[in-house]
Design a protein around this nucleic acid. Structure first.
Lengths: 208, 208
DNA sequence: GTCTATATTGAGATAGAC
DNA sequence: GTCTATCTCAATATAGAC
């Protein structure tokens, strides 16, 4: 909701309006390569007008990353609130993450590219790591209850699965015919059931 | 081979020696955020000494990206040279890509973060897109011959699968106990067979 | 092959008027 | 809430000596 809010007054920006334009530019050129000058040009403002709304370029990044992280953390909260089996809760997390990714594509894209150069970035990375840890715990639980195969390491599984989900930001574009539900179905289909035709030869046969 | 070459003369760098240090720094801070100054510090050289070996910062990037792209394209060449079924050739491509990723981790990591800001970057992205297109064609072929399930779009399948593979650069670190073969096995296991325990309830039952 | 300058450009950020 | 003008610093790159 916060990311697609329309500005109230026509002339003059509020924080959210500037944020939307800034995040789009950061994703296009990269955060470091986006100067306050080109940002001002895109907004049709002067550089100093931006500083009326944000105290620094860093603060713009901070706000954007918080939007993505809050949404992702919300998915875990919702899943933890459900009382189902670990496999059910994991399913909710995977589908929920795809939805967050699609609905907050700009800020999540930005989050996934953060390297940890500044304090703001390091704090965001720490929140991401905490998220990953909780997902890994959920995978372990699902393995322990017998819902997921146990021959793969839980952290490798959660990393590969979220690697697949996160890669969606590289190609998904809104209005391209595929909606979030369909993509979530595809992700869960590949992650849980795999690509192989049930009737085809197994890899063991193919590779010896 | 080219990326781990030891320098011949002890004092004084050759191009490869500078390249290794530069790529490591680019991956740590991001290309744009890495100045020639910190690069010089890491090398124990002055900035101008670097310009003796490379005409520009851009040229350093160009060399590094070419290393990654050549290796990945080589994987496709090898697979195309084999005469097996499409499913077998796809298997070779997936495992080969994991190996390239692990063996040329620095340059591939750099490649995966390129945004397309400069001509050098745009050319690299074009080569990446060509690679992806050939992989998608291979997936289609495997679907047509009945080796892979056909209810998923071939381009979505190849994107998700390579999203999983590419995400390895985010967490794999050499000497961490897991070797490339093991990771390739895990990737192929998840991609082809999925995570679900064969005997467990199916998703349809879980979600209604 | 490396150095000490230095030229030049553009960055993030501020002052103060309107 | 936005502007013009400017400060300050750091960036890429070059010149020319050793």
């Amino acid at each position: 909701m916060s990311e697609n809010t329309l500005r109230r007054g026509r002339p003059g920006y509020d924080q959210q309006g500037i944020l939307d334009v800034a995040v789009a530019a950061f994703n296009e050129y990269g955060y470091d390569a986006t100067s306050m000058g080109v940002l001002a040009d895109r907004l049709g403002l002067s550089k100093s007008a931006i500083y009326h709304h944000f105290t620094s370029k860093d603060e713009i990044l901070d706000r954007a990353l918080d939007s993505a992280l809050s949404a992702l953390e919300g998915v875990l909260e919702q899943a933890d609130a459900s009382t189902g089996r670990a496999a059910d809760r994991l399913d909710l997390v995977l589908r929920g993450a795809v939805h967050v990714l699609v609905e907050r594509l700009p800020s999540v894209t930005l989050l996934l590219r953060v390297r940890g150069n500044t304090e703001v970035e390091r704090l965001a990375l720490a929140r991401r790591r905490a998220f990953d840890k909780r997902v890994t715990a959920l995978v372990s639980e699902a393995q322990a209850e017998g819902s997921l195969r146990s021959d793969l390491d839980a952290s490798v599984v959660s990393r590969l699965t979220f690697g697949m989900i996160n890669s969606i930001v590289e190609w998904y574009r809104p209005g391209g015919g595929e909606d979030a539900d369909r993509i979530a179905d595809d992700v869960v289909a590949v992650a849980l059931d795999g690509l192989r035709m049930p009737t085809a030869n197994r890899v063991e046969d193919l590779l010896g």
